[in-house]
Design a protein around this nucleic acid. Structure first.
Lengths: 199, 199
DNA sequence: TCGGCATGTTATCAATGTAAACATTGTGGT
DNA sequence: ACCACAATGTTTACATTGATAACATGCCGA
């Protein structure tokens, strides 16, 4: 039997017509879902079901699925920024800070696999709601800026850029390879791969 | 109107009941589709439609969608191997060969975005048909072996492994970042990031 | 030759994203 | 205080998709 369509299976008893803050609830549930499955197979209908609202209610808050995903990305960005901040503040700055951030980057990815992939995946997000300034994921910016403190200031800017890209690449690559099960996700490996030796 | 269900819209006139080599045709069409859209939104039905066969015919050759994708991966692996082979044979071996492979890796990713991502994405593939020996993508193996020639042979194996992982990470990371539009996909950048300086 | 097996086909499901039309609120202007 | 209106939810409905089951066809070997 059709276990349920949309319609009258709103199982909440509180059952007010207006949810109160659906927008937030949807995002929260979205985050919950994405922490358990790949981002693509996150289902709007399932989210609304769990939140206790009709399937199409979502569309009052997000023009489409992509927009909801975009919102999740934003939350993810903030989480990542926090992670970075926390990772660096315990270090003495300079190279230590840089390596700490690198490790934090990979750990974040491992801790939030689908969200991380979603965040990094293609394109300037449609960016639901408030359009966050530049559009670029600022993960790079933070990593990059920290690195700048370490590089000889008189180095040609082009070389600096290369170093930054190398740093980002190695960290991002390791994260991806571990996420995709190509490299075992072990702390020991993270530490050894992300080491000053590659600069 | 329902533009078409499955059923009688087999538009080929040849219209033999038996296709001849559906398996191959499906894979080919699959490759065609994946070269134009992300792997997840590749549709079995569309493939069968294009091939001129009923929607469910696919299931005579692949137990499910994942299996078809697995088959595509295999083809991709072969293409990648070829690319590597071609990339190295024009070099004098050693570090040159290694860098050439690195560039080839990234270029392959850029040339076959969805296929590349599919190949690299999670898990020992269900691996339809003949199960390819080890299961691991041998992209790493090739890259890795080439690198080994360059490293001092007396280095501790652990260090060698770290170097290899660093190499794979940087190359893979750059590829991914470019694929996802986080870094402009320019040949100049590829060349400068993949340079011996990081070893 | 003819019976079985491989390969295709039609019908049918359940799930999903999304649009259209309708219902119910809360709110701001008079 | 009232009441239209905008915001937010709800039902219906539809096309698309992956998948299963039952039926059809045709090739190949005993």
């Amino acid at each position: 039997m059709p276990t349920d369509d949309n319609s009258v299976n709103i199982e909440t008893q509180g059952n007010r017509y207006h949810h109160g803050d659906l927008q937030a609830a949807l995002i929260e549930e979205g985050l919950a879902q994405i922490s358990q499955r790949p981002a693509e197979k996150l289902s709007l209908r399932e989210i609304s079901r769990k939140v206790g609202v009709s399937a199409t209610a979502v569309y009052r808050h997000f023009p489409n699925k992509a927009a909801l995903l975009g919102a999740l990305c934003q939350v993810g960005s903030e989480k990542l920024s926090d992670t970075f901040a926390r990772a660096t503040e315990e270090t003495g700055g300079g190279m230590d800070a840089f390596e700490a951030m690198g490790r934090a980057y990979v750990r974040f990815a491992l801790a939030n696999p689908s969200l991380f992939k979603l965040m990094m995946s293609k394109a300037p997000k449609p960016n639901a709601l408030d359009s966050d300034q530049n559009g670029q994921t600022n993960g790079f910016a933070m990593l990059s800026d920290t690195l700048q403190d370490v590089l000889p200031a008189d180095a040609p800017p082009e070389l600096q850029m290369v170093k930054r890209l190398q740093a980002w690449s190695i960290v991002h690559g390791l994260a991806m390879l571990m996420l995709d099960g190509q490299v075992p996700a072990e702390e020991k490996i993270i530490a050894s791969v992300i080491s000053r030796s590659f600069l």
